[in-house]
Amino acid sequence: MSIDLTQRPPRSPRVRLGGYVILPRLLDKCRAEIAGKNGEYHYNCPMDQRFLSFTGIDPEALKAEAAKGLGDADMFSWIEKTALHKRSDYEIAHWSEYRENAVPSDNESREYISAQIAKAGGAAREDIGTWFDFLDFDDYVSFGGKA
């Protein structure tokens, strides 16, 4: 179940598993790290930590489970059983929508994103506003796409 993130990006943070945004991307990065093929991507980064905190999942326990070679469905079942914070479908949907629409909330983050977009040739791109917009853009241009 490993993925080579030196050859292609992880799934978009918008892709959902069990209603959770971020989770499929987190699993891709985790599996790639286990395989030593994570490239520039980092498992348990601040965005991953938002999911881990919301569910109460220990990142090392999740990594150990992923190392067994489980697919997404089995990993989700494990998460449902293991999560310290049991969430309703409503809570998951609300959290996922909030995360999907989250924007950089401090000047340092906004400046960083603006600089990265300009560096990639996208200075005229005024449609990149959320963290997820930025990650999708960054993944695209990192693998040869044009800004």
Results as ranks from 00 to 15, higher is better:
S2K: 00
I3K: 05
L5G: 00
T6S: 03
R8Y: 00
P9A: 02
P9V: 02
P10M: 04
P10F: 06
S12F: 09
R16V: 07
R16L: 05
R16A: 07
L17K: 07
L17E: 11
G18C: 03
G18W: 03
L23M: 12
L23V: 14
R25T: 00
R25C: 00
L27K: 04
L27T: 08
L27S: 07
L27V: 11
C30M: 09
R31G: 01
A32S: 09
E33D: 10
E33I: 05
E33W: 05
K37A: 02
E40Q: 14
Y41F: 13
H42W: 11
H42L: 11
Y43E: 01
P46T: 13
M47D: 08
D48R: 03
D48Y: 07
F51L: 08
L52E: 12
L52D: 07
F54N: 02
F54M: 04
I57T: 06
I57P: 04
P59C: 03
E60F: 04
A64F: 13
A64S: 15
A66E: 04
L70W: 14
G71I: 11
D74G: 10
D74M: 14
M75G: 11
F76M: 14
S77C: 13
I79W: 04
I79N: 03
T82Y: 07
T82K: 13
T82A: 11
A83G: 12
K86E: 15
K86M: 14
K86W: 15
K86V: 15
I92G: 05
I92S: 06
H94V: 15
S96T: 14
E97A: 06
Y98N: 09
Y98V: 12
E100M: 11
E100I: 03
A102N: 15
N107P: 15
E108A: 09
S109P: 09
R110E: 09
Q116W: 08
I117M: 04
A118D: 10
A120D: 10
A120H: 13
G121R: 11
G121A: 08
A124V: 00
A124T: 06
I128E: 06
W131Y: 15
F132C: 09
F132M: 14
L135H: 09
L135W: 07
D136E: 06
F137C: 03
Y140G: 01
S142I: 02
S142D: 05
F143W: 12
G144D: 05
K146T: 15
A147D: 11
